[in-house]
């Protein structure tokens, strides 16, 4: 489970402090796929990085599987698997070698990491290309490898930042299938997207984030009832218009 309570974050910029996250609060439970939906620059990546302990919140509380972010970061890192859409695996190592590397980074003992790699390869159907050079893999194969890398330590919380933004349709299916399966296995899945249809199809719970504020948070049905609307798209654009983001 992931819980954020009144999280604030500012960045120092040349023009002074920039308040990027404003009192963000939400909860994502095991078995849920929580989607942060918002345009570019809304604060999605910053939110996910705070949960993954890459950034520290200025104020507020962040709890990851009962661990307090900012206090028990190393333990949290054992619980979260992070994947970003702009990550491009490259180089001459094979998926097996890459997985071994990340297993080492996670301090997984040798025997166990060997077993885990076999298991992941089976689970994501990677056997055929496990020992081929990554540079020679197709987009779908690379995507499977990226996913495997992010969950090599079998994390309870899976954080995917715009995982499909730069993928072709076949590779998108790999991600979507994986996320569905992970939530079925009781993992807590958090993902960000700026694609409305993706959030609508994939997520069980949605948080709409605009200019660092979480202005809507709930299941799709809850959101539609609140706004007396029939599509998420209408709600989203109505909210954006309200804030003067669309003329």
């Amino acid at each position: 489970m992931v819980e954020l309570i009144n999280v604030n974050k500012s960045f120092k910029t040349r023009k002074g402090m920039k308040h990027v996250l404003k009192d963000i609060s939400f909860t994502a439970e095991p078995g849920e796929i929580y989607g942060l939906l918002g345009p570019n620059g809304a604060g999605k990546t910053t939110t996910l990085r705070i949960i993954a302990t890459l950034l520290k919140a200025d104020s507020g509380e962040v709890w990851v599987d009962g661990l307090n972010a900012g206090v028990e970061d190393r333990k949290i890192r054992d619980k979260v698997g992070l994947l970003t859409g702009d990550m491009k695996l490259s180089g001459n190592l094979s998926p097996r070698e890459m997985l071994k590397f990340f297993a080492d980074l996670n301090h997984i003992p040798k025997e166990m990491s060997k077993r885990r790699i076999e298991e992941l390869s089976e689970y994501l159907d990677m056997n055929e290309f496990l020992d081929r050079s990554i540079a020679k893999l197709s987009a779908g194969m690379k995507q499977k490898t990226s996913i495997a890398v992010s969950i090599v330590h079998d994390p309870e919380i899976i954080i995917f930042d715009e995982p499909t933004s730069s993928l072709d349709v076949l590779a998108v299916k790999v991600v979507v299938d994986f996320l569905h399966d992970a939530s079925k296995r009781g993992k807590t899945v958090l993902l960000s997207t700026h694609v409305l249809s993706e959030a609508e199809k994939l997520c069980t719970k949605i948080g709409i984030i605009l200019e660092g504020e979480l202005i809507m948070n709930g299941t799709k049905d809850e959101i539609l009832t609140t706004y007396e609307s029939s599509s998420l798209e209408d709600v989203f654009f109505a909210l954006a218009k309200e804030r003067g983001l669309i003329i």
């Binding site: 992070l82 859409g85 990550m87 490259s90 990340f102 980074l105 301090h107």
Partner: peptide, 13 residues
């Protein structure tokens, strides 16, 4: 540039 830095930083090292 390859976007892999963030991922490298989330582990036990």
């Amino acid at each position: 540039e390859r976007g892999s830095l963030a991922v490298i930083l989330v582990n036990q090292v």
